[in-house]
């Protein structure tokens, strides 16, 4: 009887050790990555230039791939990824929609003038609520939406060469 208890405790003991040992290697910061494809939930926002209210249903109306990119002029990584966005636009395979996150209108316009404007439509997100509807938590963040209006890819952080190629593979 006693030996059996001891045995059980020893097994538990090593189980605990292994789990904690593995747990040490996991990062302890949570990143809300896309677990599986999901439907794009409807969101409302006002237009960057005209300030008129529109809804996601009106904007994503074509049978097309869409890329929703959250950006801000004060965000440095956004500048890094901007060239890739322009290149993507030049492919003419995907429509780019920008969401201007917690930004100043003047600075944002200056940013577009300097770096070019890859977006076919820009929405304003003054208080950060629009991006939360999408499931983003910072800038830059990018969502790829397929023809069935499903989010198939979520990119947290700037787009780099590798991710750019991945996107090309998806939309071709």
């Amino acid at each position: 009887m006693k030996n059996r208890y001891f045995f059980i405790i020893i097994v538990l003991f090593f189980f605990f050790f292994i789990v904690l040992f593995k747990g040490l290697k996991n990062p302890n910061v949570y990143i809300p990555e896309l677990q599986k494809e999901k439907n794009l939930s409807r969101f409302d926002a006002s237009d960057f230039y005209s300030n008129t209210k529109t809804s996601s249903l009106d904007i994503l109306n074509d049978n097309n791939f869409y890329l929703i990119n959250i950006w801000a002029s004060w965000c440095l990584p956004c500048r890094e990824e901007h060239d890739y966005l322009i290149k993507l636009k030049e492919q003419n395979l995907i429509k780019l929609i920008g969401i201007n996150y917690k930004d100043n209108f003047k600075n944002a316009k200056k940013f577009l003038n300097e770096m070019g404007n890859p977006y076919s439509k820009i929405l304003k997100d003054k208080n950060g609520t629009v991006s939360i509807q999408l499931g983003a938590y910072g800038v830059p963040e990018t969502f790829i939406i397929d023809k069935n209006k499903k989010i198939i890819k979520k990119i947290i952080g700037p787009i780099d060469k590798k991710i750019y190629n991945e996107i090309l593979l998806i939309i071709k």
């Binding site: 405790i9 020893i10 003991f13 050790f17 904690l20 040992f21 040490l24």
Partner: peptide
């Protein structure tokens, strides 16, 4: 963490 983990388990093991 690894060091304390090993140390902790040696302690528990010995006392058990």
């Amino acid at each position: 963490g690894l060091f304390i983990l090993i140390f902790l388990f040696i302690l528990v093991f010995l006392s058990l």
